[in-house]
């Protein structure tokens, strides 16, 4: 065995695990999406090759474009706008807050992020339920709140995901803001720039790397959110809050169309893969 090969031996268990359980599902996903695998029945054991049948089905199925759109709305509203803007705002506010307020605020925001996802989902469910905390508060000021989970399910899951995930952005931006040289903002202040101008022309350009990193990471995390939506609305009413992970799950396990669900999963792998490549290329992290 050559020296190079001998040195690579410790990599073998990692390569084996990743090949079987990461690459495996990805390859299987591409393969399975071309078959008519079902959950039970004759085609469960011996699926047939149906070529692009599942993908043709996706395009013909009104639920798929709807779900794709809901996914875009969910990712854009809760991650790209909600978590990022609120996370940056919180990071900025934390810097000018007094110590007790700062520790209470960061602890409370981080707590929502540290909770196991199923507990966070229950908490959000209780908050937005027709008899939940939000409507009790609205009743306190004389407003009869709607059944949020039923009449505005997307709004409820978007707000819940902002509540759940903002801590991550807040922490990333806290670190980024701490790296902004104070002389820069002070110089801008002397030149007569107001707060908004300093933010737009000094702070944001300096932390742009953190912004792009955080945008990509929150996008990818939000793309795979399942539990929060599944517990809160079950993707419903109907398919009104079925994002792609929910739709794939429902098609495969509720309607027993595993091949069809796999095609949806393949679309998600491709979307996630494209985002990952953009992220890695844009960031060009130091791998040496």
């Amino acid at each position: 065995m050559s020296r190079g090969a001998a040195r690579a031996v410790p990599l073998a268990p990692a390569v084996a695990l990743l090949a079987l359980f990461m690459l495996g599902p990805v390859v299987w996903s591409f393969y399975g999406s071309f078959t008519n695998t079902a959950l039970t029945g004759p085609t469960a054991a011996n699926p047939e090759w149906i070529g692009l049948g599942n993908y043709a089905g996706l395009l013909a199925d009104p639920d798929f474009p709807k779900s794709l759109w809901l996914t875009v709305v969910f990712v854009f509203a809760s991650a790209v706008v909600g978590q990022n803007v609120l996370g940056l705002a919180l990071a900025g506010l934390l810097r000018s807050a007094v110590r007790p307020v700062r520790s209470i605020a960061s602890t409370v925001v981080v707590a929502a992020w540290v909770l196991p996802e199923i507990v966070a989902a229950f908490a959000a469910y209780a908050f937005f339920h027709a008899d939940g905390t939000l409507n009790a508060m609205l009743a306190g000021i004389g407003v009869t709140g709607p059944d949020w989970l039923y009449s505005t399910p997307m709004l409820a899951v978007v707000l819940a995901n902002i509540w759940r995930g903002t801590a991550f952005s807040m922490m990333v931006y806290s670190a980024a803001l701490a790296e902004v040289p104070p002389d820069l903002t002070e110089a801008a202040q002397l030149d007569g720039a107001n707060g908004a101008q300093r933010l737009a022309w000094v702070t944001l350009p300096v932390i742009r790397r953190s912004i792009s990193t955080n945008l990509m990471l929150t996008t990818l995390q939000t793309l795979s959110v399942f539990t929060l939506i599944y517990v809160m609305t079950g993707g419903g009413p109907g398919t009104d809050s079925s994002t792609l992970p929910i739709l794939a799950y429902q098609e495969a396990f509720k309607f027993a169309q595993v091949g069809y669900g796999t095609a949806i999963a393949t679309v998600m792998i491709v979307v996630g893969g494209v985002f990952s490549v953009i992220y890695i290329r844009a960031l060009r992290p130091e791998v040496d």
Partner: peptide, 15 residues
């Protein structure tokens, strides 16, 4: 690094 980004829990159906 690519693996860290892949939404693997979103592909539980093929898994």
């Amino acid at each position: 690094l690519f693996g860290t980004c892949l939404p693997i829990t979103a592909v539980m159906v093929p898994v």
